[in-house]
């Protein structure tokens, strides 16, 4: 167990606040910018900031996913989509105040609900009392691998992982079909015109 000094905890708190403020600024600029290329770049910055925050919060695996999917693949996919559309977002004249009210109320309710949640890392919290002790004490005997996360994902939650993989595969297949279809059409029409020239 590593014990941290008070000054290190203070530094981590300041880091959290500054990074969250940076994320807020990025999110606001995402709303107000109209150039789609700039929006894609800003969403990359948003994911990178989120990735640092996940490292600060000790969930390195989530951070890993965020950086590779959020900042890596989805930037590339959005650029590939941008090549098929206009460079500027359509300007919206009408403001939907009712939607803003609904979103604000829902956000406030969710924020209110977090007051009832147990403290972060509380050993007495229900989530740490239910099945977690069994995973910690029995997974070595019941499943085998020395890593608890591996045995949880591959054995205790095997069907869940299979479902997740299916969803991700379907989504990837759909995206590649949509992006590839437009390009294939363009290429075939180019081929046809070439044949006509001959």
């Amino acid at each position: 167990m590593i014990t941290l000094g008070n000054d290190v905890i203070l530094a981590s708190d300041i880091l959290n606040v500054v990074l969250l403020v940076l994320m807020l600024i990025t999110a606001l600029s995402l709303i107000f910018l109209r150039n789609l290329f700039a929006i894609i770049m800003m969403s990359g910055i948003f994911s990178l900031t989120a990735a640092v925050l996940y490292v600060v919060w000790d969930s390195v695996d989530v951070s890993f996913t965020e950086a590779s999917v959020g900042a890596g693949i989805s930037t590339v996919l959005m650029l590939a989509t941008l090549a098929l559309t206009a460079p500027e977002e359509k300007r919206i004249r009408q403001r939907h105040w009712a939607s803003l009210a609904v979103v604000t109320v829902t956000g406030a309710l969710l924020g209110y609900a977090t007051i009832d949640m147990p403290r972060y890392g509380d050993p007495e919290a229900p989530v740490n009392k239910h099945v977690a002790p069994r995973y910690i004490y029995e997974s070595g005997k019941e499943v085998g691998p020395p890593n608890m996360v591996t045995s949880t994902l591959a054995a205790y939650r095997g069907y869940d992982t299979l479902g997740e993989t299916t969803v991700i595969f379907t989504a990837a297949a759909g995206v590649i079909t949509i992006i590839g279809a437009a390009r294939r059409r363009r290429r075939t029409s180019a081929d046809v015109s070439k044949v006509r020239e001959v």
């Binding site: 770049m41 990359g44 950086a67 590779s68 900042a71 890596g72 930037t75 590339v76 650029l79 590939a80 941008l82 090549a83």
Partner: peptide
């Protein structure tokens, strides 16, 4: 990841 996405953007 940084290197690859920068290459992707410049290629675009």
């Amino acid at each position: 990841i940084n290197f690859i996405s920068t290459i992707a953007v410049t290629k675009y």
